[in-house]
Amino acid sequence: MAFHRITLTVNGEIELVDVPSNMTLLQLLRDKLVLTGTKNGCAAGECGACTVILDGEPVNSCMVLAAECDGAQVITVEGLAHDGTLDPVQETIIEQGGVQCGFCTPGILISARALLDRNVDPSDYEIRDALVGNLCRCTGYLRIIDAVREAASRAS
């Protein structure tokens, strides 16, 4: 099986890695770059725990080949806070009690950040729609939705 030498930027750091053809972006992040904040919940593009921002848009990193990511910009949950200052969605999800077991949380935060990047004032429906691909089994979602709404209102 062929290996590919790729260069990509993850959370602002330039990385040079050799990846086999069948390695997913999720495996690259977790196993090679040890960015374990991104979670593997189904490896089938269904649960959203592995959601990262790839070139400005959220993707299921289990559904992207690492080899495709040559030259890409990736942001993971580890890249949301800057110099110890949390992203507003990180702050509000804590305040609203939208975190329980925390396994879906990284993917939720990425989806929420991506939503607010493209829509500064989302309706409740738009928030729910943006989070449909992020399964959460603990919270019942309402506090997460509250957190995204609150983060949006804080930004405006």
Partner: peptide, 21 residues
């Protein structure tokens, strides 16, 4: 009071079993 595990869980710092090296 706020959860004491929340910050680790929102920053990706919280370790789950599959995250151990």
């Amino acid at each position: 009071v706020p959860r004491l595990d929340a910050r680790d869980k929102v920053t990706g710092a919280a370790r789950f079993a599959d995250d151990l090296q």
